[in-house]
């Protein structure tokens, strides 16, 4: 295996593990928000934001935690046949079918990019181009130039009315990391097939 691929596996896994371990403590964030919700309801006026904030936390929790959960092997498989296969055979199948997984996550990522472009006020049919231009504007002209490109900022249709682009940005990051992790899994399977120990 080329050295840079081994480095890729190492760095991707390390980074995703770090992100996942931060997301892991999100369980206490969700708990705190929900407990505050019931405390504030009992003793003060109920808060407008708790339920929605807890929903955002839940989304961040499972999407950012996704790559780490792959590392932990937590995602079940139907092992009718798979369970009895040799590691080599498993690696063969996984190395092929992981592309289906990557395709799915790719479509999710595209949808998230498109939805995020909308939440920043872009209504056209080329969300990827919008993000590219936004990035270029930001790099060349700074926040002001990027701000120029934004239109109607989408807000959640609730009384709290939070902007939606932050949670969509979190999802983009999560799906992106998931893709990187899937690629890392593919490379690990290739390594297994080549008899390389990592």
């Amino acid at each position: 295996m080329p050295r840079f691929l081994l480095a890729y596996i190492r760095w991707t896994d390390r980074f995703n593990r770090g992100v996942g371990r931060i997301a892991m403590y999100g369980i206490f964030l969700m708990m705190a928000i929900l407990l505050w919700s019931s405390v504030s309801k009992t003793f003060f006026t109920p808060s407008l934001w708790t339920l929605e904030m807890a929903q955002f936390a839940m989304v961040a929790y499972y999407i950012l935690g996704g790559p780490y959960s792959i590392q932990l092997g937590a995602n079940v498989r139907m092992d009718l046949f798979y369970g009895d296969w040799s590691p080599r055979r498993k690696a063969w199948f996984d190395a092929c079918t992981v592309f289906l997984l990557m395709f799915y996550i790719g479509v999710l990522l595209y949808g998230a990019l498109s939805s995020a472009a909308y939440s920043l006020g872009y209504f056209g049919d080329a969300p990827l181009a919008f993000h590219r231009d936004l990035l270029i504007a930001f790099v060349t002209g700074g926040p002001d130039a990027a701000g120029e490109m934004l239109g109607f900022l989408e807000r959640s249709p609730t009384a709290w009315r939070p902007y939606l682009w932050p949670i969509k940005a979190v999802m983009i990051v999560g799906f992106g990391l998931m893709l990187l992790q899937a690629l890392s899994e593919f490379l690990k399977d290739v390594a297994t097939l080549r008899g390389v120990t990592l």
């Binding site: 995602n75 139907m78 798979y82 997984l101 395709f103 949808g111 498109s114």
Partner: peptide
Amino acid sequence: VTGQRVFGAIGFVGVSAAMLLWGTGGSE
């Protein structure tokens, strides 16, 4: 049956059917 992670298998079939058969906007 291929043993890929369950969510990957189901998600793949869902989004590919959408891309092929839905028409405009299926990718979303």
